[in-house]
């Protein structure tokens, strides 16, 4: 199917903004957003149209504590008041559930945990993990995002194409162009630096692209092969 006809772009983008594009269709759409600028432009047009409805709602004054909490989150104020700590603690499980709900395969994640934790070293708790799955839902890479780096393990189910590299991308939910995180190992383990963006944007997905040796020549993914969700553990 040609995703890039005007009609297709509009129908997917409008339902994405409306919130009725869900499940696999939503994930597919997100990977299309990564690859195609015209798709991002269609998204922005629909955000502009539909969110005019939301912008016309009568203003409601939020509790003054919200501004305090925002400043605390951004580190503008040194000592957050007690209730902020309580709030932060409460908001964590919220995220966890959200990602769990989005997870494609709980079994694959359990497998990843087992594999990642195999070396019996005392390591900090993995903050988030993702499993990149192939066409038959086989696990190809296990990805662990810690506070300082991204640990990646290629599984033996992955058979690399010759003379190609595989690049990992962060796909932000805000529709910006995907950000390269580095090249994936074709076998064994490797670590990449953790991009600061992980703390600054909502991560819609991680994506893997097929690239000429050395990685994308353009700074954008050449051909997106897979996407995967990060799941907080």
């Amino acid at each position: 199917m040609n995703y890039l006809t005007e009609e297709r772009k509009n129908s997917l983008s409008s339902e994405y903004v409306l919130g009725t594009l869900q499940g696999r269709a939503r994930l597919r759409y997100q990977s299309l957003l990564i690859e195609h600028r015209p798709m991002r432009q269609a998204l922005w047009r629909w955000e502009k149209h539909l969110n005019a409805l939301g912008a016309a709602l009568p203003e409601q004054t939020p509790d003054a504590s919200v501004w305090v909490r925002i400043q605390a989150r951004l580190g503008f104020i040194e000592t957050p008041p007690d209730n902020v700590v309580a709030f932060e603690a409460k908001s964590q499980p919220e995220n966890r559930w959200r990602w769990l709900a989005a997870a494609a395969s709980v079994a694959a994640i359990a497998l990843a945990l087992v594999l990642i934790r195999q070396p019996a070293v005392v390591t900090p708790e993995p903050s988030q993990i993702a499993v990149v799955q192939g066409a038959k839902a086989e696990a190809l890479w296990l990805i662990e995002l810690t506070e300082s780096q991204i640990n990646i393990q290629a599984t033996d189910q992955f058979s690399p194409a010759s003379n190609k590299d595989y690049e990992l991308w962060l796909v932000s939910a805000d529709g910006r162009a995907p950000i390269s995180l580095g090249l994936l190992p074709e076998q064994g383990r490797a670590s990449l630096a953790r991009s600061e963006l992980f703390d600054q944007v909502t991560v819609a997905a991680l994506a893997v692209s097929l690239e000429p040796p050395g990685g994308s020549p353009t700074g954008s993914p050449t051909e997106v092969l897979y996407t995967a969700q990060l799941v907080a553990m």
Partner: peptide, 26 residues
């Protein structure tokens, strides 16, 4: 400016966040 007025752009951000919470299992 392709993303609409500043307010509409901000509303988009808030709405996606609210939808995420709305769709959460919790």
């Amino acid at each position: 400016s392709d993303k609409g007025s500043v307010v509409v752009w901000m509303v988009s951000i808030a709405r996606y966040r609210a939808l995420d919470i709305l769709r959460s299992a919790a």
